[in-house]
Computed example of a mutant assay.
Amino acid sequence: MKIAIIYFASVMLFFGCANGQTGNRNAMAPVPKPAAGEAVATFGGGCFWSMSEAMIELKGVSKVVSGYAGGKTKNPTYEEVSDRTTGHAEVTQIYYNPKEISFATLAEAFFFAHDPTTLNRQGPDVGTDYRSIAFYRTPEEKETLISVIKKVNDTKHYTNPIVTQVVPFSAFYAAENYHQGYYRTNGDNPYISSVSEPKVMKFRKAMKAKLKPEFLK
């Protein structure tokens, strides 16, 4: 059994998020400006493939962009971020209508879309680029994040306490085009089917009341 577990772990590391498309040098995706009345939020919780899918399924969210934030390097590439030389984490930038969904609800969804109790790790993905990180743009958003963290910790939804970084937003850089919507266009990728999909399915159960109708099937 131990040999089988080690073999499975090795396979998952090979097909992990950082190994999904190395060498692909597609152009960087554009960073859209929010539409009139829209707000923007940025969260990082491991591989952005599943996080982006989870967030786009929420009512009130119009679009998401996979990208990088939290570091110092300007316009980083996927390879640079994966080499952990930039300080950035893989993140998802979310464009939403605050009249339909609140920042607090987005924050709660974020904590259910990944495991915020594991330091610099999400499943087979290990490193600071996979750290759990939440950005705030206003003092009110900072207070909201701290409040939601306390709420989730108090419910004992997770056995261990949340270790998510709560930091002020500085800059967001969109990832390469091929990362955008990757979850839906690469279902045959072993990483998607074995790691990302179970996370999305778990997210749907936790946030059922907040999902768009098409994801309630």
Rank of each mutant, 00 (worst) to 15 (best):
Ala4Cys: 00
Ile5Ser: 06
Ile5Asn: 03
Tyr7Arg: 08
Ser10Met: 12
Leu13Phe: 08
Gly16Ser: 15
Ala18Glu: 12
Gln21Met: 15
Thr22Asn: 11
Pro30Met: 13
Lys33Thr: 08
Ala41Gln: 04
Gly45Leu: 07
Ser50Gly: 15
Ser50Thr: 14
Glu53Cys: 06
Ala54Met: 02
Ser62Ile: 03
Lys63Glu: 05
Val64Gln: 11
Gly67Val: 06
Gly71Ser: 09
Thr73Ala: 09
Lys74Ile: 03
Pro76Asn: 09
Val81Met: 13
Ala89Pro: 00
Thr92Ala: 11
Pro98Arg: 14
Phe103Met: 12
Thr105His: 09
Thr105Phe: 01
Ala107Glu: 06
Thr118Arg: 03
Thr118Asn: 02
Thr118Gln: 11
Arg121Val: 01
Gly123Cys: 05
Thr128Leu: 07
Ser132Cys: 11
Tyr136Ala: 01
Tyr136Gln: 01
Lys142Asp: 11
Thr144Met: 02
Ser147Cys: 07
Ile149Met: 08
Ile149Pro: 01
Lys150Ile: 00
Val152Glu: 03
Asn153Ala: 02
Thr155Ile: 05
Lys156Trp: 02
Thr164Ser: 15
Gln165Val: 03
Gln165Asn: 06
Val166His: 02
Phe169His: 01
Glu176Thr: 09
Gln180Lys: 13
Arg184Phe: 09
Asp188Gln: 14
Lys202Asp: 15
Glu214Tyr: 04
Leu216His: 02
